[in-house]
Write a protein that binds this DNA or RNA. Sequence first.
DNA 1: GGTGAGCGC
Length: 285
Amino acid sequence: MMQQPPPGGVAPPSSMTNDPSQTQQYQQQPQSQPWMMTSQQQQAGQPVPPPAGWNPQPVPPPSQMQQYSAGSAATGSGEIRSLWIGDLQPWMDENYIISIFAQTGEVVSTKVIRNKQTGLSEGYGFIEFVSRAAAERVLQSYNGLPMPSAEQVFRLNWAALGYGEKRQEEGPEYTIFVGDLAADVSDYMLQETFKAVYPSVKGAKVVTDRTTGRSKGYGFVKFGDESEQIRSMTEMNGMYCSNRAMRIGPAASKKPATDQQYPKGHQEALILGGLELISAEMIPL
DNA sequence: GGTGAGCGC
């Protein structure tokens, strides 16, 4: 039950990833990757350099690093310039995060959320940038890439909740279940794979084991358009994402989307005062 | 292998 903490030294990043399927294909070659066909905005200025090797520095005790309060990310203008980062290992502290993004020169602060009682990391944190554009550049370029000294990839997203403004609420969502995912498929890769075919795709999520950061081999894709969701279930079934054919199925809805269907197909609710309505179709013989 | 989770602890 040991994970491998980098004890101040360089942890062997991929000592056990000899799996040929683990090739770093999802790295820096946008034009050659089908799922990246949508070159996100031309990054004004210089693109964010890929995380090279992170230089492990002596890790100060947690007690010394409580000062990063990212606090109100939405100031004045109300623009969101913070990212949420998840799947953090217990040893991934503020310094680790800062080291990674320091080269952008645009990080204002970072904060790892810890349990009040135990002081242990809750596995997620926040990174505040000088501007929304800066945050977006990092979101687009780092998401899905391998994290330094770890055998997992970055899981980044906008820090949205709690700061009003900008929240979704763009209508119902239709989700599908996607199984048989290759081990290297990330949220972003999965999303782009579908978005390339279905414009209404809103997002995708690969389920991972929080303690290892490894994919559990399945995930979900959300659509804004129901017809696309339905079509995708047949059209994308068996299609490849990375090096494995996906298996698609309906998702057990977890979020009641606006107009939830009746769980069992019962129509009891239709008893609007007239038993006549309940005709033969309701009564299985 | 299989129907998530993760928003300021």
